[in-house]
């Protein structure tokens, strides 16, 4: 069973005051997250990550498509006991202390018995490093502390699926490391983690699989190790002369032609052969760059591709 299964989810926002125009923010997303997996949802600003997570939490409603969580319809209130959610840049009730806030959320999540709750609250606060805030009200908390409170509230009811929107943002390097550790330990407990980020190193360190979203479209994704080896040991070659491509096509693992310029990816072992052949054809070489083999390369290659619609109407 998939922990999360998204089928054809789309969202068009209505913008404008009078004549409302539809602006697509998410275009028919299909995505699955396996049980016990850590899934990184990558994309630049405005890609549609938050939109996807808000749809999944029932905060906004989709234009079309549906999803299921742990095998049940995603809007079914019963399933929500098993989900924990951290919104982007969370902010909480100013006048509550951290234990009061968690108590409130625990009650809303249907956790039984006052005393078991307070034990749990104590344990969770320790876990996120807020064991000593006592009765201090949240309006006196720093941004980083609030982010911790946010994570605490997402796991207070011991959910099976944890959905986090940019959990590392607003953190100093130390804080980021802590969050990473925490997510790792959740994963070790067998929880499913679905989180969005644009910080790739975090995804690289934590995730089993990633998906890359750009301008509302899923551009690619897969097992992190595959993606990395996909680009590791390869070079990017840029040259002028589209006529040359046909002769060397068997050597290229990827090529894009824009006008007269060709951008091609080639295995490093084939690089010499390719350069030789290109020289024979009197093609003008512009650049040769060895690829680093990080997720970042994959990410950049995916987000710099033109969308289908852009390719049709340049």
């Amino acid at each position: 069973m998939h922990a999360i299964e998204i089928q054809g989810l789309s969202k068009d926002y209505r913008v404008g005051f009078w004549k409302k125009k539809l602006q697509p923010a998410l275009k028919s997303l299909d995505l699955t997250v396996a049980s016990g997996e850590a899934f990184g949802f990558l994309g630049p600003n405005g890609a549609g990550k938050t939109t996807t997570l808000k749809l999944l939490m029932g905060i906004i409603f989709p234009s079309s498509g549906t999803a299921s969580i742990l095998g049940q319809h995603y809007l079914d209130p019963a399933i929500k006991k098993k989900i924990g959610f951290l919104p982007e840049q969370p902010y909480f009730y100013d006048y509550l202390s951290a234990p009061e806030l968690l108590g409130y959320y625990a009650q809303l999540s249907g956790m039984p018995a006052q005393e078991r709750r307070s034990q749990r609250i104590h344990a969770v606060l320790e876990r996120v490093g807020l064991g000593d805030t006592g009765n201090k009200q949240l309006r006196k908390f720093s941004k980083g502390m609030l982010q911790r409170v946010g994570i605490a509230q997402a796991i207070i009811h011991d959910p099976e699926v944890v959905v986090l929107d940019e959990p590392m943002s607003g953190r100093d390097p130390l804080g980021r490391h802590e969050v990473r550790e925490l997510m790792q330990s959740l994963k070790d407990e067998g929880k499913t983690i679905f989180f969005s980020t644009h910080i790739l190193s975090d995804a690289e360190a934590l995730c089993d699989r990633v998906g890359v979203i750009h301008k509302g479209e899923l551009r690619g994704g897969g097992v992190v190790n595959d993606l990395r080896s996909n680009v590791a040991g390869k070079s990017e070659v840029i040259f002028e002369g589209a006529h040359g491509v046909a002769k060397v096509a068997d050597l290229l693992s990827e090529s894009h032609v824009t006008g007269g310029t060709v951008r091609a990816i080639v295995r490093s072992s084939d690089l010499d052969l390719l350069l030789e052949k290109l020289r024979q054809q009197r093609v003008r070489l512009i650049a040769v760059t060895p690829l680093q083999g990080t997720l970042e390369d994959y990410f950049l290659s995916k987000t710099s591709e033109k969308t289908e619609s852009e390719a049709v109407h340049p």
């Binding site: 929500k80 982007e88 909480f92 999540s109």
Partner: peptide, 14 residues
């Protein structure tokens, strides 16, 4: 505005 509602609606609250 403060997005506290998000954390509430993500729970079994109608």
């Amino acid at each position: 505005e403060k997005k506290t509602l998000y954390t509430i609606l993500a729970r079994p609250v109608r």
